[in-house]
C-alpha cells in the first residue's frame, strides 16, 4: 500500500528518534489493533457468549490490551523515550487513573447496593430541617 516506504522498511534509527517507529511497527500495531477491535464487536453483535458479565469482562480486557498496543506501536513509549521521563509520567498517570476509575466505580456501586429503597412518602426530609 505504501510503495515509497515499504521498499526499505529497516529505517535504522540513525539519529535519536527512537520514538518515531518504522513501517513495520505501524503495520504490526494496525493489524493487532484491528484484530482487537473486531473481536469485541463480534462479541456484542454475534452473541457467541450467553453470559453478559463475561462478555463485558472480555470487552474491557481486550480494550486494555489494545490500549497497550497503541502505546507501544503508535506512541512508541519505552524506557528510553525522552530519557525515561515519559515512562515515569505514564506510570504515575496510569496508577492515578486506575485509582480514580476503580475507586469511584467501587464506591458508587457499593452505595447503590447498600442504599435502602426509598419509601413511597419520602423519609420525612422536611422534618430534619432546623427549626427557626
Amino acid at each position: 500500500m505504501n510503495s515509497s516506504t515499504s521498499s526499505q522498511s529497516q529505517t535504522a534509527p540513525h539519529d535519536a528518534h527512537a520514538h518515531e517507529g518504522s513501517v513495520k511497527s505501524y503495520l504490526t500495531g494496525f493489524v493487532l489493533a484491528a484484530i482487537l477491535t473486531v473481536i469485541p464487536f463480534w462479541l456484542v453483535m454475534g452473541h457467541p457468549i450467553d453470559s453478559r458479565g463475561w462478555t463485558i469482562f472480555l470487552i474491557l480486557a481486550l480494550a486494555v490490551v489494545q490500549i497497550f498496543v497503541h502505546i507501544v506501536y503508535f506512541l512508541h513509549l519505552d524506557m528510553r523515550s525522552e530519557g525515561g521521563w515519559n515512562m515515569m509520567a505514564f506510570v504515575f498517570t496510569a496508577i492515578l487513573v486506575i485509582i480514580v476509575l476503580g475507586a469511584s466505580i467501587w464506591v458508587m456501586w457499593t452505595e447503590n447496593k447498600l442504599m435502602m429503597p426509598m419509601a413511597e412518602h419520602g423519609q420525612n426530609m422536611h422534618m430534619s430541617m432546623p427549626d427557626k
Binding site: 489493533a33 462479541l43 456484542v44 463485558i56 470487552i59 474491557l60 480494550a63
Partner: peptide, 13 residues
C-alpha cells in the same frame, strides 16, 4: 487510544 475506551465501554458495554 481514548477512542478505544469510548467504543469499548460507552458503546459496546
Amino acid at each position: 487510544l481514548i477512542w478505544v475506551g469510548v467504543f469499548s465501554y460507552v458503546y459496546l458495554v
